[in-house]
Amino acid sequence: MNTSPAPSKSDLFKYTLRQADNSMVLCQRLCQWAARGPDLEEDISLTNIGLDLIGQARSLYQYSASLCDQQVNEDDLAFMRDSHEWSNLLLVEQPNGDFADTIARQYLYDAWHLLFLEQLTESNDTTLAAIAAKSIKEVKYHNRHSSMWIKRLGDGTEVSHQRMQDAIAAVWPFTAEMFIPDELDQRMLEFGTGVDLKALKHTWDSQVSSLLVDATLSKPVAGEAIVGGRQGQHAEYLGDLLEEMQSLPRSMPNHQW
């Protein structure tokens, strides 16, 4: 039994960093779409979502930095950690693929992210609660945008239907991780600081199911869950993503940009 009334600073640091890493990695993926979207309107929308995510990541990194024992800032956390030190969900690091793959990843995450943030606004950590409250407005838009595309592609043409169906199937195994708490999640929940991940599962399931029905898509059967992101066990492509993102500040450390 934990008797202290609040989580340790290092737990809070790690917990905040996880959420920051999710936003950052997904943002970086969306950045890879720059000037490559299916039309100009979509270039703008994807960048909008990316901008929201980088804004969230920055607030969370700044808060993490303030909790860290070492003297670090937001950029140190984003640019100076190796992939095994990143604790984002595996879902968000999945490659962009085609537009359907990007939308599938985005929607399944958005639906979870929104539920997660709704709970996080009730956190007894006022900073996390405030960041969550601000982010909710943004993520509601993300969720509307990705839901819309799930329907358009699912119930569009034969080609788009098939691509959307394949895309959902491809990322599905990475969704289970969002609902499986580890020890840190458990401790944070007990303190009233963190989110009850297991409790999100039911609502997420029913929301996703009903959207898929609307979109004339079928829900993949739950297979083996692929997990490990929060523990820093990532696929190689997170390393590639970070290598590109971090290349300049790492090649010239201790510089102002």
């Binding site: 950045c31 720059a34 960048t47 937001e74």
Partner: peptide
């Protein structure tokens, strides 16, 4: 994708947008 700080990245994203 390679902007050297988070601030610069955000600014560049909104510029390109």
């Amino acid at each position: 994708t390679r902007a050297p700080s988070l601030k610069r990245k955000a600014i560049l994203m909104s510029k390109v947008q």
